[in-house]
Design a protein around this nucleic acid. Sequence first.
RNA 1: GGAGAAGUAGCGAAGUGGCCGUAACGCGCCGCACUCGAAAUGCGGUUGUCCAGCAAUGGGCACGUGGGUUCGAAUCCCACCUUCUCCGCCA
Length: 427
Amino acid sequence: MLDINLIRNHPEFVAGKLSHKGFEVDFTAFLEQDRQRRQLIKQTEDLKAEKNKTSALIPKMKKEGTDIASVLADMKKISDAVREGDEQLALLEQKQNSFLASLPNLPADDVPAGGKENNQVIKISGEKPSFSFSPRHHVDLVEATGLIDYARGAKLGGSGFWIYTGDGARLEWALLNFFIAEHLQDGYQMLLPPHILNYSCGYTAGQFPKFEEDVFQLKRDDKESFTHFILPTAETALVNLHRDEIIDTDRLPLKYFAFTPCYRKEAGSYRAEERGMIRGHQFNKIELFQYTEPDHSEAALEELVHKAANLVEKLGLHYRLSKLAAGDCSAFMRKTYDIEVWIPSMNDYKEVSSASSAGDYQARRGNIRYRDKVTGKPAFAHTLNASGLATSRIFPAIVEQYQQEDGSILIPEVLQPWMGGQRIINA
RNA sequence: GGAGAAGUAGCGAAGUGGCCGUAACGCGCCGCACUCGAAAUGCGGUUGUCCAGCAAUGGGCACGUGGGUUCGAAUCCCACCUUCUCCGCCA
């Protein structure tokens, strides 16, 4: 949610920033309606003030034995007028809110305008592995070594699901353990949230109402619309932790991380070159999250990016770090860095972590505040998130980048302690 | 799944149709006084949001949420949410 005052005072500025995301909007009609709405508020509130004044007099008049029949009749009229005004206002407000809720976040000043093609590569870490043999696709490798059972995964859940088996399950678990240990060491608090969330959670995160179709919806009994959904990322849970709260400023920044599977419908987005586990309906992810004061969010984003990149680096994987152009950021983010790991078989980099600052956009939607130390007044906090990390692309990257000529796979050193010292997955 | 109880400020809690929502009382917190200092005590302060206004200020709204009854609702009625207790079932 954007600050309505910013739109009132600088509509061209806001429209300009939004156009950097490829979102064209004209605020003229909106602002006119806003003026009308406020005028109506004034009118209705004046009526209410009159009503309150008279209402206070009635018991006194009663006591004095004054005939109040005419007063009561007047009150009835005022009440009706108030009700009519309130009804109109509710309608206007609903219209206004759904318009405001549909606006994306403004990109930060240092975010380049335009789409994907304007993403800026900031850093490339390591080098593309070169093989003295012809490297195999991770799907071939994991099936040959029995790490993943795609066929039975599809039997159980359908296409887009797989089963980690044997060393594959252990490798997956080792990754998660490695991430968790790192985040604990950095002072982040670990959470295991519910995987089923109510509608408000999706709204606060910015996913609803626009992306309702992307999640698995749960209908309750005979209800027509869905009230709950299965979370598409732990971010959706984490951003709602402090919804409708005023956070004790001394506790900021709040640093959390959570492990959850992520459940996504991703309807129609499956592509042939993404066979395997690049894009599934369920994947595991550790999500990092911070609540900060506005002054500290820039530094917090850098910290999150650094943490995520550090994990990939410690795994010894070749990756690149990019700052996304405005149009490639999520609608509700003001700035996003992507960490993409090299997948040899795809001859491409695939996202393993997206580190973003939402600024106060999510905080406005979820009414997440802290008390400003200078003014003593509540103010909107900033929220930031980063994957740390999603395993579904790290896993294939490890398998492909660490594959040996005989089809065996070396286990990255940092994971070995989490696999009982095992160093290699044999062909 | 069944039965019952409850939701009021940071916390506890009073209020059962108008004299009660900057909401009694208690705790906490902040300031001041007393003190060498502290404790104790005393005095004062301590919700959020919206509208108008440069401001001072004035006004509206909020007693879990949403409706309803009424001139008037924390209070009466309906639905929903959450929590607790008991019973049943259960990993």
